[in-house]
Design a protein around this nucleic acid. Structure first.
Lengths: 366, 366
DNA sequence: TTGAAAGCGATACCAC
DNA sequence: GTGGTATCGCTTTCAA
């Protein structure tokens, strides 16, 4: 383990000079710098992060808190975050909340994060009061992805707009008997995405005077398997919808699978639409509302870096990325009693919603 | 930021005593300890990792190097690693190699890892000479997952056995016209999993005297989309296989999708089998060879912790987890010229291969 | 432009 | 059982 002292000795200068020369900043004569650089390279010198951190107070680490990071959405966000951070020499400390209740969560994040990171990025999960308190006490910059939290900047899509886009599309195709997959999990309250998407679904149905049948709500857990199971029961009955709107593509996959198992043709007998544009959506030929997940991660990372570099990031900064409808083969007008409204046949291949937004205000994309 | 000094002052003792009391070890009178604990709690004291690390030389961080973190397999392994580490107060530093060539890889891992972690877990990607050199110089314990590297302990499945199991099964069903999805990517040589699986495929075919047709090898990139694309071309021709063996479930999904697009029934017209038991395999009703991916992560994490705690971990330690055949609906005997050999009809629901293994030797599961 | 020295916050050795 | 203090490796005044 070569230290700064070794380099100083080898270059015939003081440790102070080595420190200055290596960090580029500060005035050091070119000749000296060169000698120091050569010695450092020669000795494979890399400054000890612990020592640097001790004196500077910065760790170059960013904590990323996620529920389930082995789910495609979260893993992809993390990928984006990591890319953005790495270019600036920062790295990601992973903190997976999977299977941890709110009770056991606090000590974990506390010991994990305390003085270990320069900032925290929180994906989708809303912190409780104690956690907010902890984060505030640490005085760390926080960025949230996927949901809006008062006091912290955020990066996300407009979930209501996304869902509206999906529902409007199938309604436009003539569907009136529409089921919904993906309720708000009761265990974790205040999860905005499930709530907002459901809300938008209800609203669009109401706006069109379409009956919203509670027995057609698949109260599943946002997994493909869960959705398949619930859709299985739905399709087993004789009273079936002509269309299922899934709050996520993974659930849509499950629904399509169940439909197939019941001998139902998609989209002949039942249309299916999702939200996400999951990496597998193309092979499923699933019509969906695309969001750029990795971009959300990248933006969150950049935002964090900006805050770290002292660029003031408003706590009301709310970056809303655009979404677009991607029409594939899983949707079609309903077979019987088709009464197409505004949209006839298939629209153009994709419809784009306004992208990105300014700071400080949600950009409506509905 | 309350320091150990603040706690000492509050408790009316010296910093040395606080340090001892808080870490439990060492002799401290119960009364004193109590006072210190109270003061620490009161002040929300948590020891600075940087300072601790500086003197102890340990960071409680483990670097995890992965290609493509947003792929299900790798994210799931990392989940397992994280769980194992967290219980011991360690955390994961993520290093995603996606889209980085060997050229740009070295500096990344160097700056990322140097003195920042107590150990490194490498998933599937073989380090090049320079990286090995770096790792050796750092003197860090290393554990590999998914492939065997000389000098480092590993956790993995027996890829050849897994593939053999898959191929033997479809051959047993009577298939003789068998295609293969998933070649060795030319850009990253020495990737054992692709190589081993392919090798086993060839071997089983040869052992049964089955013709191995090069034009039926889908040279795809281990993604569902890639496999779908290649399978598309395969199914477009008139000379079609009765079965496709995919080296991963995700590729199998792509193949099934392509088959469906060509109006081919699975398994009526073509059987498909994969390896992994991906989280979506159930909804695809895919027959596959299951591996416990998260367990591999957990075992790797435990192995690392053992090494960190000074329990000697042999560098020849090679932990091979068992796999099992999971028969679902994507496989059936070929329609025409079916000449079933040893296996008739469907076997029991699953066939289990011997699980786990002792240290120091590969356990054959073929 | 360069060097000496004072911390940063904890641990551990050595007295008491 | 408890308290000083040297020490870890680096950054950063302050002088020279």
């Amino acid at each position: 383990m070569t230290t700064i002292g070794d380099v100083a000795k080898a270059a015939g200068v003081s440790v102070a000079t080595v420190s200055r020369a290596l960090r580029g900043v500060d005035r050091v004569s070119p000749r000296t710098r060169e000698r120091v650089l050569a010695a450092a390279t020669e000795l494979h010198y890399v400054a000890s992060p612990a020592a640097t951190s001790l004196v500077s107070g910065r760790t170059r680490g960013i904590g990323v808190i996620t529920p389930y990071f082995n789910r495609w959405f979260f893993a992809t966000v993390v990928t984006g975050i990591e890319k953005a951070l790495r270019d600036d020499g920062h790295h990601v400390l992973l903190c997976d909340l999977e299977s941890h209740t709110f009770d056991t969560r606090l000590p974990i994040t506390q010991s994990m994060l305390w003085k270990r990171v320069d900032g925290v990025i929180i994906l989708n999960v809303p912190p409780d009061a104690q956690e907010r308190d902890l984060l505030d006490r640490m005085g760390l910059p926080v960025v949230t992805v996927g949901n809006r939290q008062p006091g912290w900047p955020s990066v996300r899509i407009d979930d209501r707009a996304a869902m509206s886009m999906a529902v409007e599309y199938v309604v436009g195709l003539g569907h009136r008997d529409i089921a919904y997959a993906g309720t708000v999990p009761s265990s974790v309250s205040h999860l905005q995405t499930p709530f907002d998407r459901r809300h938008a679904f209800d609203e669009v149905l109401a706006a069109h005077g379409i009956r919203n049948r509670p027995e057609w709500t698949l109260r599943c857990d946002w997994t493909a398997d869960g959705a398949a199971e619930h859709a299985d029961r739905l399709f087993a009955g004789s009273d079936r919808p002509t269309c299922v709107v899934a709050a996520s593509d993974e659930m849509a996959f499950g629904v399509m699978s169940a439909a197939r198992r019941h001998g139902l043709d998609v989209p002949g007998d039942v249309s299916v639409i999702g939200i996400d544009d999951h990496v597998h959506s193309r092979i499923h030929d699933l019509t969906t509302v695309r969001q750029d997940v990795e971009a959300q991660g990248r933006h969150a990372g950049s935002l964090m870096l900006a805050a770290l570099h002292g660029h003031e990031v408003s706590s009301s900064h709310d970056e809303v990325l655009g979404v677009e409808l991607v029409v594939r083969g899983s949707t079609a007008p309903p077979k019987k009693q088709a009464r197409p409204s505004q949209t006839t046949g298939r629209p153009t291949r994709t419809r784009t919603a306004p992208k990105a937004s300014a700071s400080g205000a949600v950009q409506a994309t509905a």
